[in-house]
Design a protein around this nucleic acid. Structure first.
Length: 553
RNA sequence: GCGCCCGUAGCUCAGCGGAUAGAGCAGGUGCCUUCUAAGCACUUGGUCGCAGGUUCGAGUCCUGCCGGGCGCGCCA
């Protein structure tokens, strides 16, 4: 039995009491059934009586007794105790809990998935690093976390489009193009240009494709380096994302919004809606109407449009593509962007609370040997996502980046991370999976298939460690659901660490396979199912994080 | 100055109003002729930054302070 099923039983019990007239309240729909920390408090506990005490106008413990009485009569419940201030401590009937092992294996990949967001189309934008250089280590966090959030939303049934916004318009792209041109022609790095070694690589690639490029006039050269260079840079970024296990569905060009006239149209639309005005020679969007700190410029006095102007067009484009919700993940260095973006959405006539969600994640702190490293594209002290992957591998990198709350700043010391790969909890989790895989291989070698689900005597799983493991497995769907709701993939990681620990302790205490000439018993089979169920949950959980579940280590 | 985030064990961090606050690492002591020891058991370690408030109950919510990070451009 899962906590969800038990919650339904509790609801049924409350309803029965109301029916009977022993309790005068409305049946709550937000009641909580959870696994108590202390095993003496039963398999599950609920605070429903404490929540109902006030509406019922009776002491919590009295309400608890009433509900407990109804609950005891239900199927699958062994005992119900009233404890403390009014908790109901519930112990499930033999077998009701163990049956979960069979249910999990049967559900397989579907275990933990829900339909909570079925029918919702979500556009999820993350990373979106400028195509003026490779993705550095700061962007790696958003790659790991953003993709995991996408997987979580998908696990909740949402239709997710992963999107990368390519800032291929504007001044920084001009600087990039001029830097390429300078590198190709042997000139020094321009003022405010980019000087990393990758610039020379890209420049050489452009020249390889267009050997005569350096013979053209200045403007034509810069033009060619801009187009070819950006395309090559985007290719490189795409490759590093793919190598990291992140596949974007859409690579959206900012420049295309200008080329198609979408930016002009967006400004026109906002003007028609009465939110645009002119002052000091510039065109402004009156975002203060919608709670922003100050109004924002769309077109500068020199006639150039701002980044914000293309954002207006970009948002409208996303909505026109049919997304119900636009989610954007940004680093804390862009937190000032939230207010104006919400205002923009409101100005278009949408409700920001419904259609927009901006997730802010704290920045990574890059260290080397304990010393802070200041990254500079000019000085070449840039540390790349690929450097991290080369050092510790995709699994370890993704896991380490995703296991921290995005509200928390994290230190990445490539030296330390490289040296201490065995300290990365990912291996603890993966090891549990490899261990089970090995055990199931051995079982197969002994001619011990799992067999028919109906034949499993789940009631035999009565050992304390077995119960711990079953309860942990039962939690998984709730962990996924809440992690998805909170956009907090780190919760899945932390859960997996607990599950792995629970499994290791079970493994230590409960022999699964017969040794020597021992006989195969129904308990052997039941435990095999329990192991298989654990492997399923470890796989499903790791999959949410984009981390592999190895069969051997 | 204003906005957002953080402050929990020696270190790095979990803890979406619940019972005796947890994990990893670091330190100490044990456990492999039997399913993977990348494991397990035991053990050391806490004014949950400080002060008020809200309530049956606060690490969690509110207010004010202290300390740290980020942001407050006709930059991106």
């Amino acid at each position: 039995m899962t906590p969800e099923q038990l919650r339904d039983l509790v609801r049924t019990a409350v309803g029965a009491a109301v029916e009977r007239g022993t309790l005068a309240v409305a049946v709550p729909d937000d009641l909580v059934v959870e696994r108590p920390r202390n095993p003496e408090h039963g398999d599950y506990a609920t605070n429903v009586a404490m929540r109902l005490a006030k509406p019922a106008g009776r002491p919590p413990r009295e309400v608890a007794e009433v509900v407990a009485e109804e609950l005891r009569a239900l199927d699958g419940i062994d005992r119900v105790d009233v404890a403390g201030p009014g908790f109901l401590n519930i112990t499930l009937a033999q077998g009701a809990l163990g049956r979960l092992a069979v249910d999990v294996v049967t559900a397989g990949e579907a275990y933990g998935r829900t339909g909570a967001l079925a029918g919702t189309r979500i556009d999820l934008e993350f990373v979106s690093a400028n195509p003026t250089g490779p993705v550095h280590i700061g962007g790696s966090r958003w790659a790991a976390v953003g993709d995991a959030i996408g997987r979580l939303l998908e696990a909740s049934g949402a239709d997710v489009t992963r999107e990368y916004y390519i800032n291929d318009a504007g001044a920084q792209i001009d600087r990039f193009a001029r830097s390429l041109q300078a590198a190709a022609t042997g000139q020094p790095v321009p003022e405010d240009g980019y000087g990393g070694t990758y610039i020379a690589d890209i420049a050489a690639q452009v020249v390889a494709v267009e050997p005569d490029v350096t013979g053209r006039d200045e403007a034509a050269q810069v033009q060619a380096f801009r187009e070819r260079g950006v395309a090559l840079m985007v290719d490189e970024i795409r490759r590093s994302m793919e190598d990291f296990g992140v596949d974007f569905d859409v690579w959206f060009s900012e420049k295309s919004l200008y080329d198609s006239g979408a930016v002009e149209k967006a400004i026109g639309r906002l003007r028609d809606q009465g939110h645009v005005y002119e002052a000091d020679g510039a065109v402004w969007l009156r975002t203060t109407t919608f709670g922003d700190d100050k109004d924002r410029v769309l077109v500068k006095a020199d006639g150039e449009t701002t980044y914000f102007a293309s954002d207006c067009a970009y948002y409208l484009d996303k909505r026109a593509r049919g997304f119900d919700k636009v989610v954007i993940m940004l680093g804390a260095d862009h937190s000032g962007y939230v207010g104006r973006y919400k205002a923009l959405v409101a100005a278009t006539g949408d409700d920001p609370a419904e259609h927009l969600e901006i997730l802010i994640g704290q920045l990574v702190n890059l260290l080397r040997g304990g010393e802070p490293v200041r990254m500079s594209k000019r000085a070449g002290t840039i540390v790349l996502l690929s450097d991290l992957v080369d050092a510790i591998g995709v699994d370890a990198a993704r896991y380490a980046l995703a296991r921290a709350s995005v509200d928390q700043m994290i230190d990445i010391d490539v030296d330390v991370w490289s040296r201490q790969t065995n300290d990365n909890p990912v291996f603890y989790v993966q090891y549990a999976h490899a261990r089970i895989s090995s055990l199931l291989r051995n079982a197969a070698d002994l001619g011990l298939p799992l067999g028919e689900a109906t034949a499993v005597e789940a009631g035999l799983l009565t050992h304390e460690r077995e119960n711990d493991l079953l309860r942990a497995l039962a939690e998984f769907p709730r962990v996924v659901t809440s992690a998805a709701e909170l956009r907090a993939p780190h919760r899945v990681a932390r859960y997996l660490e607990e599950l792995a620990g629970t499994y290791h302790r079970f493994y230590d205490a409960c022999r699964v396979l017969p040794r020597g000439d021992e006989e195969v018993t129904p308990l052997t089979t039941a435990r095999l199912w329990l192991c298989a169920a654990t492997a399923v949950v470890l796989r499903n959980g790791l999959a949410v994080l984009g981390v592999s579940a190895p069969e051997r280590m």
